[in-house]
């Protein structure tokens, strides 16, 4: 089946079988391997991408369902060079070790802070409780997200 959607600002057209998940489509057809697959059950959150502004499990969404949608992956959150403020906060706070859950954490937190730049610690913890990390114990991830809020508050302010 032919599917057309936007990934990281670029229009793409792919031919996939009906059962292909969005995660597999992104990884294997579009070679965007930053999106990771950790469980294929929608539990671990490593595959989280942003679809029309919402954080979505790309392992639970079929590629054909993305037809016409705007999809952002971790690659789309990264500037041409260097790191975004959220990515920088992760580095500063040592919010990653093996890096496998990291793309899903970044997309989840980006989607949250884009909507709620003033989210408090409890809200952040609650939202990322759907993303599993086995290395860090989460505390530094929460610190990084708290720290990155300023840049989202800033960019929201700029728009208004």
């Amino acid at each position: 089946m032919s599917v057309r959607f936007e990934v990281n600002g670029k229009s793409v057209s792919v031919d996939v079988s009906p059962r292909t998940t969005l995660a597999d489509c992104l990884r294997h057809e579009l070679h965007l391997t930053g999106t990771h697959v950790g469980c294929e059950h929608g539990v671990c959150g490593a595959c989280t991408v942003i679809v029309n502004g919402d954080a979505v499990r790309s392992c639970l969404m079929l590629a054909v369902q993305a037809n016409g949608a705007k999809v952002t992956t971790v690659e789309g959150l990264s500037p041409e060079e260097g790191l975004s403020p959220l990515q920088t906060a992760f580095k500063t706070h040592h919010a990653l070790q093996c890096g496998f859950c990291t793309p899903g954490m970044l997309t989840t937190i980006h989607a949250l802070l884009s909507e709620e730049p003033n989210a408090d610690e409890d809200r952040i913890r609650d939202v990322i409780s759907g993303n599993l990390c086995r290395c860090t114990g989460y505390i530094t991830i929460v610190e990084a997200a708290m720290d990155a809020r300023a840049s989202y508050q800033q960019s929201r302010g700029d728009k208004e």
Binding site: V74, S78, K91
Partner: peptide, 16 residues
């Protein structure tokens, strides 16, 4: 010291 390997992981450029 911030980690050297973080850059590629954070940009989704790790190779697993």
């Amino acid at each position: 010291i911030e980690r050297v390997e973080d850059y590629r992981f954070l940009r989704g450029e790790g190779k697993y």
